Amino acid sequence: MKLSADLKELEQRLGYRFARPDLLRQAVTHGSMSGPGREDNQRLEFLGDRVLGLVMAQALLEHDKTATEGQLAPRFNALVRKETCADVAREVDIGAALKLGRSEQKTGGRRKMALLGDAMEAVIAAVYLDGGFDAAQALTLRLWGKRIANVEDDAKDAKTALQEWAQARGLEPPLYLETARSGPDHAPVFTIEARLSTGDQAEATASNKRQAEQAAAKALLARVRQAKA
């Protein structure tokens, strides 16, 4: 099976070439596009979640050899949670290659955190099945590298961390504004803007307000830290 142009480009962004291209196609196929002869990515997502967990657990032990289990647990959760997987998926633009049904396309499926996070885990599983654990580990460590290095900060609740950052500088607490809502009533998608009294702001989209607020806070915190660096 030959890869389509969008999947070849995704291969390049991932930095991994598949011996079994069908695995990559399955990894980016949402349930809304599954059918006879075309499996969706749910089973791969299940496996990828476990592979990611093992890679991150080992990486954390090596990153901080003195950390206690109580310190490691929130760091681990910060690295493997769906929001983080979706962030990584956005960085390699998995959304551009997602195979979605018409309904998901119309409701912004390529931007949905859950779909992106699931696809990222499925891609990890696809690499694992195609090239073994070493290949999956190398891919994951490359894509998660900066997050592992900064995991102590990322393990904090993003809204709390942003508020602490603002208070330390004598600023008012951040504001969170719903700027858009799309999708059907049973599956809404929220866009939230996090804003500081300095005028700095960042937006994020998710399937519930809490996740969108957390993602917006995280994006804004990263932006102001980079600007002040």
Rank of each mutant, 00 (worst) to 15 (best):
E83K: 07
Q71Y: 02
A67V: 02
A168L: 03
L175N: 08
A136C: 01
V80W: 06
Q137R: 11
D118R: 13
R142Y: 05
A155S: 15
V51G: 00
K65T: 09
K106G: 07
A136S: 04
L61T: 03
A125Y: 04
G108F: 12
F76T: 00
L98G: 10
E178S: 08
A125M: 06
E152F: 09
L162E: 07
G109N: 05
A97R: 03
Q105D: 12
L61Q: 09
A57G: 08
H63S: 02
L47Y: 01
A161W: 07
I124N: 00
A114H: 15
E164L: 14
R111M: 13
K82I: 15
M120L: 13
E69W: 00
D49S: 13
A126V: 09
R102K: 10
R81Q: 12
D157T: 11
K106L: 15
E91M: 12
A96D: 11
L171H: 08
E172T: 10
A59L: 02
A135Q: 02
E62M: 06
L141P: 02
D49M: 08
A78N: 02
V127G: 11
D118F: 07
A138W: 00
L139D: 01
F76M: 07
Q163N: 13
K82W: 13
K112N: 15
A161H: 10
L100M: 04
L116K: 08
E62A: 12
Q163S: 10
Q58G: 06
E83W: 08
N150F: 05
A89S: 14
G108E: 14
A149I: 13
L79W: 02
L115T: 13
R81V: 12
G70N: 06
Q163T: 15
P74I: 04
M56S: 05
A158E: 08
Q58E: 10
E164W: 02
R50F: 05
G117H: 06
G70S: 12
L129D: 04
A136T: 01
L171D: 03
Q105R: 15
G48W: 08
N77A: 14
Y176N: 09
R110E: 13
D87Y: 11
V55R: 00
R75D: 00
G117Q: 07
S103W: 11
T160S: 13
A168N: 05
A89K: 12
L141M: 08
E164S: 08
M56N: 01
A97K: 03
K106N: 13
D154M: 12
L72S: 01
